[in-house]
Design a binder for these strands. Structure first.
Lengths: 188, 188
DNA sequence: GTCTATAGTAAGATAGAC
DNA sequence: GTCTATCTTACTATAGAC
């Protein structure tokens, strides 16, 4: 692909990080420009407006999510476990974008919620194919969403404490997922 | 109790509604005052600052959550089902406050995350007492959190579509909860 | 392609009249 | 207790130099 200018990438990453880490409100043009090491004028050359910045993040989510979807489909432990584990870790490229877009969604940015829903449905489809039962697939998704809810919440005593609590229990959670899957298999 | 002035209540409700419905950013002093039918000066008589408004919402959450906790503990269907169902409905007093505080938490308001975590732990304790197994209790909580994550997200095609999707499946979800509970009981 | 300077606007908060 | 008027600051965005 025609490699986009480095400054543009830096600005996008900076915006993403501030939105995800300090909230949408903190992501002012000044703050983004400063974090990227660029002037405000420079920022506005690459992105005509603040909204354009947000739109670019949504596009970035779609791209990284497509790549991650391949990994999920091919995961040795299976899509369900891959998904649940990923909901907790939140360290990959997709997670950065996903997190930022989640904040944009709660800030009512047009298109953000739709993007989240679309990706969510792709994940659900993969899990449904694996476990072969709609209700179980949804329950597994909900557990993953629940984990994500905790991971995405800005830290009580900071994110690390909650995250580490669940990390130490992620295997227990995955066991419960296994119980659901087994019960569904028995019924078929 | 010494009934607080009506205007104060109106202002608090207006702020809550805007934060939950249009995002924290939309809840400007002007917007809140207008919705409550009060001038900005009037608002600032009751709440010295915007932060004071947010703090009052957090306090409101604690009060309503304490009342709801009684209902949950005494629910005929049991705390677990009460919790899962409540995560989807999000129509009660607590839900209004909880939703607003969730937005405040993502906007990094001090104390908001702690308030959510505290209430969350009370719920978890009730469910743990009921099902008698920590891992299962956590899995059930996660399912509820997942439902809430969907319910709280501003609507894809609007909240109604997602909510009604899960409403029609809430019994299926509760069945999965039952599977987990039964499996845990069998192990003891 | 990136900068400085600046215009225009919206938001939080104060002061003082009623 | 509620209002109007006003001050101040911070943010988005434009214009034009380098």
């Amino acid at each position: 692909m025609p490699r986009p200018p480095a400054a543009r990438e830096k600005l996008l990453a900076a915006y993403c990080e501030i939105v995800a880490g300090e909230g949408e409100r903190a992501a002012t043009l000044d703050a983004v420009a400063e974090r990227a090491g660029v002037s405000k004028g420079g920022l506005l050359y690459h992105f005509k407006s603040k909204d354009a910045l947000a739109d670019a993040v949504i596009e970035g989510l779609h791209e990284t999510a497509a790549a991650d979807r391949e990994l999920m489909a091919a995961a040795p432990e299976g899509p369900a476990r891959y998904f649940v584990r990923g909901s907790l870790e939140a360290t990959s490229d997709v997670d950065t974008y996903f997190n930022a877009v989640l904040r944009l969604a709660t800030a009512q940015h047009p298109g953000a919620t739709d993007a989240l829903a679309a990706i969510h449905n792709e994940w659900l489809a993969l899990i449904r194919d694996e476990v072969g039962d709609e209700a179980v697939a949804e329950a597994i998704m909900l557990i993953g969403d629940g984990l994500y809810y905790h991971a995405a919440l800005p830290g009580a005593g900071d994110a690390a404490s909650t995250a580490s609590h669940f990390r130490s229990r992620v295997e227990h959670v995955l066991e419960q997922v296994e119980v659901l899957r087994a019960a569904a298999a028995r019924q078929r």
